[in-house]
Design a protein around this nucleic acid. Sequence first.
DNA 1: TTCGGATCCTTGACATGTCAACCAATGACA
DNA 2: TGTCATTGGTTGACATGTCAAGGATCCGAA
Lengths: 172, 172
Amino acid sequence: MTTSKIQRELQQKKPFATPAAEAGVALLRTSDLLQRRLAATVEPHGITVQQYNVLRILRGAHPEVVPTLEIATRMIEQAPGITRLLDRLEAKKLIERSRCRLDRRRVLCSISKSGLALLATLERPMSGSLAATFAALSDAETRSLIRLLDALRDSLNPESVSPTQNSKEKSK
Amino acid sequence: MTTSKIQRELQQKKPFATPAAEAGVALLRTSDLLQRRLAATVEPHGITVQQYNVLRILRGAHPEVVPTLEIATRMIEQAPGITRLLDRLEAKKLIERSRCRLDRRRVLCSISKSGLALLATLERPMSGSLAATFAALSDAETRSLIRLLDALRDSLNPESVSPTQNSKEKSK
DNA sequence: TTCGGATCCTTGACATGTCAACCAATGACA
DNA sequence: TGTCATTGGTTGACATGTCAAGGATCCGAA
């Protein structure tokens, strides 16, 4: 075909210069759409996708607790965002926070009973949204997609960013 | 392998329930990383990736002009976000806006000379970042990825959202 | 020609994310 | 035991996105 699907979606006149450019746009756009679908799924329950992810992390660790910055690492986000995200979750009583006794700098987080209940409620809708989305692909295709994305993340790791990328010096 | 790559990245204890769940997380996470890399690429030049995309759209139409809502459609965003995004671009003198004479409700946007110059400057760094990212994949793999993502977007289109998804009525 | 409903944005209020700067606690070393 | 860099988090200022509501304009029918 002469015009690609994504090109039509964007009503773009000119074709992409490289396959990489097209794949990049396709990746960002597809992810954005998925993000929106998932957001629409959790939104009626008063949380965002990010908040949902934090709850999942905390449930995964349950009954152990997780320090704030470890959550930040597992999400991709910066710490300040996590602090406030946790503030909101705590305000909704979906998590609990307490200072670590051994190291009083640390704040330990854990999921509350209602947090667990909310996750249970969201289980079906969320896996339904995912299933509906990936119904477009066969199992083999889904696994293939996973493999390709895994390879991409390898070259996207902060460490492997080429020198020309970095405008800011991070030396000590 | 018993534990997937993404599972290790998230330091997740439990394996994914379904391939769809794993693929969903992989998609969102990979896209987020790409988004960050691209953001780091344009940031030294004082714009965001979204602003860059708007400039690309306007350059694509140049010398024709584009009404605000058409930009909103091509980006995935809602209109209010676009208005303010355009405000910032106009403040930086990268675009120009004017009322349409035939239909005074419309605001027509076009890229300015310095907008074009900025895009020219960003050409190399941006395609470099994309190339570096997709260097991890062969051409055939990149095309395969594009195809899989295209298929996903088909089932992610707002129209094809299953009824149970929609909490809000959108009937007229 | 004038009224009412659509269309195209824009504005206000608010959620959330980022960077820079800060505070508090820890831990190592003099 | 005092000092000081490091670590873990929080706060402030600001950018950007969302939803709801509000102009302004257009258009078609009475």
